[in-house]
Design a protein around this nucleic acid. Structure first.
Length: 456
RNA sequence: GGGUAGGUGGCAGAGUGGCGAUGCGCGAGACUGCAGAUCUCGUUUAUUGGGGUUCGAUUCCCCACCUACCCUCCA
């Protein structure tokens, strides 16, 4: 299996640090608003990836943080006159709801930053004692000049970072690229006690504190959106590799391409943010997953409702083939087993090559065509093998909706048919319906106004 | 200005130093009581432009143009 690593800029053979165990960390959201389609892109991909690794026999420990204290949360609280921690609590719940509706279930632990304050403070303290950090009147900062590898992930040098900086210069910082580990309390802000007085953590420190706690100083994969490469992941490397003295912090840096809306970047300022729950009002979650997985995770995806409609046909073809073959019953025979397994091999080859989901999907489509063409000739073993493969596909990609049996609707339809039959005095049909339903504990009674039914 | 990904048919979207996947769409047939699903065939010069390396490039190198992202919070 090969994985593309942002740091080395090449596909590398995937070799976990400890046998079949995989330690995977993915940067979670800052919870100050509903999750949007961009979050869906990233988290659907890593969910699929984790599921696939497990399918291939790896034991994946998938850890994700949740940034529940941060400037944006505080600002939102200020604007709404609410406690910032109340806001982050609410949107953490909304986030979980959105992830569940996208059928994302592969994360082992969600770690909100505020639950790990002692770990965060401990790591800052060690950085300070080792001379990598210094205290000013407004906080504690990481001294980037102490870490000569700073910029290695984003392939930039400190000089160019300085040249391009449009940030207002903080007088207290020794170097413009120095970043906050701890921010001292300001009036009206949430705070925690620390050796530097009351305050709150900087943005980057929670991730390394949390991963150090669960994984130790080195682990296998760190993922996130490509907008996090600089400065966020750069800063994480600086913190972790400085405090542990061990390199590299992770062996595989994975970054998802960003999502645009009609070729424009999505953002609050553009006014084009689409929330996950908005889309799911109009489209099945499985269709959204199919759409997102139709592009390779490192490529940008352009989203529009029109495109969702356009791919609907391709998606339904897969779903329908699965539904139909699930209903097939045939005598024992298995003349297509090898061919069915060949499609499975194609899918594995694609996924083993840096999780090439578009190519994997094309092998699913080839398999669907094969099934459609040969369904009539298939034997029992062929059917079972096909269903098995479909189930495996769905356990990884989750693009097939669970069959929702609309029981009440179907009973209503049967009652209507029974009524039509009775009106035409075709009592053999109407009685057949009543008897068969009764056998399934559904009882019909004729009353003055028509029919009623109840379950025993 | 610096950094990073890319630019493939009507659309989406892979791959490869040497017949350019796959799906959708479109056209024509088949099947069919109706509907739906499905199948078959077709869709003529699809690899941004210009150089270079090579027997041969869409694939490698250089230049240009274009797109997105990062350099400020951002999945």
């Amino acid at each position: 299996m090969k994985i593309y690593d942002t740091l080395s800029r090449e596909k590398k053979e995937f070799i976990p640090l400890e046998g079949r165990r995989v330690k995977l960390f993915v940067c979670g959201p800052t919870v100050y608003d509903y999750s949007h389609i961009g979050h869906a892109r990233t988290y659907v991909f890593f969910d699929t990836m984790a599921s696939y690794l497990r399918y291939r026999g790896y034991h994946v420990f998938y850890l994700q943080n949740i940034t529940d204290i941060d400037d944006k949360i505080i600002n939102r609280g200020r604007n709404e006159g609410r406690d910032p921690l109340d806001i982050s609590m609410e949107y953490t719940i909304r986030y979980f709801e959105d992830m569940a509706s996208l059928r994302i279930d592969s994360v082992n632990i969600y770690a909100p930053a505020t639950y790990y304050m002692d770990r965060i403070i401990d790591q800052i303290l060690r950085l300070e004692k080792m001379g990598f950090a210094y205290e000013t009147e407004d906080g504690v900062y990481f001294n980037v000049l102490m870490f000569k590898d700073y910029g290695k992930l984003s392939h930039q040098s400190l000089d160019t970072i300085r040249a391009g900086a449009r940030v207002e210069v903080n007088e207290n910082k020794r170097h413009p690229a120095d970043f906050a580990l701890w921010k001292k309390r300001k009036e009206g802000e949430p705070y925690w006690e620390s050796p530097w007085g009351d305050g709150r953590p900087g943005w980057h420190i929670e991730d390394t504190a949390i991963t150090e706690y669960y994984f130790g100083p080195q682990y296998d994969i760190h993922g996130g959106g490509s907008d996090l490469i600089f400065p966020h992941h750069e800063c994480e490397i600086a913190q972790m590799e400085s405090v542990s003295g061990k390199k590299p912090m992770v062996n595989y840096w994975m970054h998802t391409g960003l999502l645009t809306i009609k070729q424009e970047r999505m953002g609050k300022s553009m006014g084009n943010v689409i929330n996950i729950r908005d889309i799911l009002e109009k489209f099945e979650p499985e269709l959204l997953r199919f759409f997102l997985l139709s592009s390779h995770y490192r490529s940008p995806v352009d989203f529009s409702y029109e495109k969702m409609e356009e791919i609907r046909q391709s998606w339904e073809k897969i779903v329908i083939a699965f539904r139909k073959i699930s209903k097939m019953e045939k005598e024992s025979n298995g003349r297509f087993i090898n061919e069915i397994r060949r499609f499975k091999g194609m899918l594995i080859d694609s996924m083993d090559d840096d999780f090439n989901t578009p190519e994997a999907i094309s092998s699913i489509q080839a398999f669907v065509n094969f099934v459609n063409k040969n369904m009539e000739e298939m034997g029992g073993e062929d059917i079972i093998e096909s269903i098995k493969f479909f189930n495996e596909i769905d356990s990884i990609f989750k693009i097939i909706p669970p069959e929702r049996v609309a029981e009440e609707k179907i009973i209503d339809i049967l009652l209507k048919v029974r009524q039509m039959a009775r009106e035409k005095k075709m009592y053999d049909i109407s009685d057949y319906i009543r008897e068969k339903l009764r056998e399934n504990n559904i009882n019909i009674e004729d009353i003055q106004e028509g029919q009623i039914w109840y379950k025993k």
